Simulated scan of single mutants.
Amino acid sequence: MRRLIQGRTTEFTLLAVMVLLCVGLSFGTDRFLTISNAFDVLNVSAVNIIFAVGLLVVLISGGIDISFAVAASVVQYLTVLALTALGGGNWAEGFLVAGIIGIGLGAINAFLVYRLQIISIVATISTFNIFFGLLMFFTKGVSIYNLPDWLSTRVVFYEHEMADGSWVELTLPVVVMILCCAATSFMISRTTTGRKLYAFGDNPEGARRFGINISAMHYISFGWLGLMAGIAGLMQAHYAQEVVPNALYGRELDVLAATVLGGARLGGGKGSVMGCVLGVLLVSITQNGLNLMGVSPFAFKMIVGAIILIAITLSSARFDKLLPDTLKSSARKGGQG
């Protein structure tokens, strides 16, 4: 039991903070600590959690990606256009097309990082702007409101009317989120590939000498995030009942903050799906409580920025692991001079 607690320190800490936060917010507004609001938070958080478990894999491998939210916007737009042109399609075809496009966009990032040796954060800043620029240029910012029937029809697995007239709903995005979490957890903790990703993120040179395929690690990690981004984009379109080109713009910082808060280490080699989920929920609970209390949304942005700053400061990994060896050598020589 003691070993379990020591291995899950981050998760237990987040749970304790969430409990204290919920108690505190319940004094600020009587609408917060209700079952219907709890399900609302879960439904709203589903897309971010899908993003987060994808980003977790990239962080474990020692990289970083901030282009995934824009990639999801590209995926949902192209998927809807493609299936509409083919007669409408269905859920199976939707997931297939979204997954293929998402993996393809992830592979572009992997190519830039591995083949062209561009720092992952620089490469994904570039693709972030390229993807978004191309999307806005070709769509002219026009949203799609006429979605295929299978995508626009709400799928509710459970619903119940409460005594106060509010409704409790368990929607499709939550179920898909659970499946994505389970798949990611299985991949990183139960497969040889997952162990290689941890090893590569913790010690890239040691992993290379041990014979781990470095190219595969890059393409698997960024490809997995691309797959999750494609699925998340489809779930966002289903939840919002529309496809808005810039709807997910800016979501990447919230997800990054939550994922690092959940224990994923900048620099690689550490992170868990449970911590990732708890991190997203903690950020979502904070935002939900502040909204119910009438606090300005700009205050929440300040909190997210503080979370990122604190997480980087307290991270046990050296941030220079994200830099190539040439830059690290130059930095050391400059310091000696």
Rank of each mutant, 00 (worst) to 15 (best):
L170A: 08
V75H: 07
I50A: 02
R209L: 12
I178D: 06
L266Q: 10
I66C: 02
Y114D: 09
G28T: 00
H238C: 08
G262Q: 05
I118L: 13
S215T: 13
G94D: 07
L14W: 03
I231Q: 09
G223W: 01
K270Q: 14
G262A: 06
L261D: 00
G28M: 09
L20K: 00
R318S: 12
H160D: 01
L20H: 02
V80I: 12
T171P: 06
V175W: 04
Y145R: 01
I64A: 02
A72L: 09
Q236F: 11
G94A: 10
L266W: 11
V174R: 02
D65C: 06
Q117N: 15
L278P: 02
T9C: 12
F210L: 12
L86W: 15
G250E: 11
I188N: 07
A331G: 08
L59A: 09
M217V: 14
A237Q: 13
N109E: 06
L197K: 10
L134A: 14
A110H: 12
T84P: 14
C22E: 01
S166K: 10
Q76A: 12
T84I: 12
Y249M: 05
R31A: 08
F27A: 10
S126F: 13
V75K: 04
A163N: 08
K196Y: 07
V174G: 05
K140F: 01
M1N: 13
D320Q: 02
V57D: 04
V304R: 13
V122W: 11
N48V: 07
I119R: 12
N213E: 08
V80G: 03
L179G: 13
N37A: 11
L309M: 15
I178R: 08
A240L: 12
M293Y: 03
L86P: 12
S330E: 13
D149K: 14
S221L: 05
I118C: 09
T124F: 08
L112T: 15
V255P: 09
F186Q: 14
G141I: 07
A229Y: 04
N43E: 11
S73A: 14
Q6N: 14
F222Q: 07
D320S: 10
V283L: 09
A98H: 04
L42P: 00
G62T: 07
I103C: 03
V19E: 02
F319A: 00
G279I: 04
I212A: 08
S61Y: 02
L197G: 07
F12Y: 13
